[in-house]
């Protein structure tokens, strides 16, 4: 192969005065920032819509189902383009201009990725709650809990424990999906990857480094969730969770 290996190019100065390895690090920073913020949004939305889908109220169920159906059946990149390029044209002119000029890309991107991921988490939360026995809700109600209190004290604490493995893989997916935000101008890891290839043509070195960087964040996320799982484990219960009988 006539490929010219050159690992030292990472320490060359790029045209903005920074060195290429600094581009990588800054990309990594944005990747982590976008992912964690989106994940937080997604957990909130996913929990709210997931709970709605388990209530006895037909309207709440319909709203929750619609949210999940819409955001699961349109590709992420298309969703991001809708938020960035379509929505500003549909709202009143002043707001549209503000969205295009003053609203930070970061905010739009994390809301977009958060909404996308939230639909998947809503599925998990719903499945977790439904895997509990009906008797758990009854027991809460029989003690005088309101419907909301049965969620707060009885059903959600168990549901989260049960779906924690699924949430772990959603969290790792967020890192991977955050790469798509390059398409709307977020300077995250993949954006830097593309840019460094264009500037230096050192495809193999940078591919190896970026791949390793994604491994590291995925591994760190995995460990973090394993730690949470261990902390929240209930003595006397089989791992993986047995919600009810």
């Amino acid at each position: 192969m006539n490929y010219h290996w050159d690992w030292l190019f990472f320490f060359q100065e790029a045209d903005d005065g920074l060195m290429y390895y600094q581009w990588v690090l800054s990309g990594l920073g944005w990747t982590v920032a976008v992912s964690l913020t989106s994940l937080a949004i997604a957990l909130l939305l996913g929990s709210a819509f997931g709970v709605m889908r388990t209530t006895p109220n037909r309207w709440l169920i319909a709203i929750g189902d619609t949210y999940v159906d819409v955001f699961r059946n349109i590709p992420l990149i298309v969703q991001l383009f809708l938020w960035f390029f379509v929505l500003p044209e549909l709202v009143p002119r002043d707001i549209g201009l503000w969205m295009k000029q003053d609203l930070p890309y970061f905010v739009t991107a994390v809301i977009g990725l958060g909404l996308f991921t939230g639909a998947r988490i809503a599925e998990q939360v719903k499945a977790g709650i439904n895997s509990l026995s009906r008797g758990q809700r009854f027991a809460g109600l029989a003690l005088g809990f309101t419907e909301w209190q049965t969620y707060r004290y009885v059903r959600l604490p168990m549901a989260y424990r049960i779906v924690l493995p699924a949430l772990t893989s959603e969290a790792m997916n967020v890192y991977k999906n955050s790469a798509v935000t390059y398409s709307v101008g977020i300077l995250e890891l993949y954006f830097q990857y593309k840019q460094i290839i264009e500037k230096t043509s050192q495809v193999l070195e940078i591919t190896i480094v970026i791949t390793l960087a994604y491994f590291v964040v995925a591994f760190a996320t995995n460990r973090l969730f394993a730690w949470i799982e261990q902390r929240s484990r209930v003595p006397g219960m089989i791992a993986g969770g047995q919600g009810g009988k």
Partner: peptide
């Protein structure tokens, strides 16, 4: 393949 982003 499950650890790297598809776009990459």
């Amino acid at each position: 393949f499950r650890s790297v982003p598809l776009v990459q």
